[in-house]
Write a protein that binds this DNA or RNA. Structure first.
Lengths: 206, 206
DNA sequence: GTCTATAACGAGATAGAC
DNA sequence: GTCTATCTCGTTATAGAC
């Protein structure tokens, strides 16, 4: 057992396995990484991994569960900090920028691409992840409309779906170019398009 | 040799291989389909495929080349039909809707997700595909701004990048839900957000 | 909890006959 | 241009010792 509250870079083997596997999946995709890859990086053998995660399906479930949990916590921290709807949306986009900066794709985004090859439990986890994020974003859009920091009409839920699609798509399209510029362009336009008209380009609109 | 101008469902073995492989890649991804899958569906053996496409890398290049060619032709047909910028954008989005309706992902979109695992020539092809589409979309946005059918300020090129990101992302997020509804929601909002204010929701904006 | 050893299978690819 | 047969390698996964 680890001592509570003490920083450590060894957080238990299962978590270390998830760390390496997560990075590999976000980089190459679920069908292009193997137990051998993870074992080699950790300096252990493949059966050691199977002890913690008997099957690749179980590993996938654990990966998505932890990723979803962390994402939920990150959204909660944004909510706790308070601020306008726009400020919360900016912080949320920041989460994605950090992923892109590490040359990764969103774990659930890359798994969505491989969706037909995944075990059913993971498919359900993916839907839950996207549903959670859409619901949270819809709340942010509504809050921003109330506090005047975000404009834009129509259903908040549909607006949330479009924002999530744009963020995931921008991560996807950033990959072949290797730098985060293309992601940031699309991300900043999300905010511009929801601007309450204080920005330069806004003045040009009808 | 086939008789010219006569419709035929047998267009040559190489094209048949590409048809099956394309569908499998768009469905499962490049790393989750095999020569055995294609051979089984066509009722031939694996070496028959290797005769036409010696390596999987060569097959990938041929797939992306044909896909890009067809996409370019489709864009050209849209241009030939004429119409406003908005009409051309609607037709373009229609291309993506057809892909989603077949429960497929854009070939280049799903390959972008697997980008780090692809041979370098294919990576270059992906960049060319996305660059072409961004350039075309930027032209459409500019045309629409001139003819009054599309509003929206800022760089047309950046607007084009955002539209492409949204379309690819919407295809991605549609996968776990199995129906095209979520794609159409995001797609219709692209047009709404570029609306020259004749639509219902527009009236609500500041 | 990790190891050695290995099973069982599928992958991409080649040789050579027809 | 397609076949049979085969090679080599990597994959997920298990048995059993330590």
């Amino acid at each position: 057992m680890r001592s509570a509250g003490r920083p450590s870079n060894r957080t238990g083997t299962a978590d270390e396995i998830l760390d390496v596997a997560e990075r590999l999946v976000q980089h190459r995709g679920f069908n292009a990484f193997s137990y051998a890859d993870v074992a080699a990086e950790l300096g252990v053998t493949k059966p050691a991994l199977h002890y913690h995660f008997p099957t690749k399906a179980a590993l996938a479930e654990a990966l998505v569960a932890r990723y979803t949990e962390r994402f939920t916590e990150a959204r909660a921290r944004i909510d706790e900090r308070g601020g306008t709807g726009r400020a919360r949306l900016e912080s949320y986009i920041e989460l994605y920028e950090r992923v892109v900066a590490e040359d990764r794709m969103c774990l659930c985004g890359i798994l969505a691409a491989e969706h037909p090859t995944l075990p059913e439990p993971v498919r359900e986890q993916l839907r839950a992840f996207f549903d959670d994020n859409v619901a949270w974003l819809a709340g942010v859009l509504e809050a921003g409309r109330r506090d005047g920091s975000l404009s834009g009409g129509g259903s908040a839920r549909e607006g949330a779906q479009m924002i999530l699609a744009t963020l995931e798509g921008a991560m996807l399209l950033a990959r072949p170019y290797g730098d985060g510029t293309r992601f940031r362009i699309a991300a900043s336009r999300i905010l511009d398009d929801l601007g309450p008209a204080p920005k330069h380009t806004r003045a040009l609109r009808a």
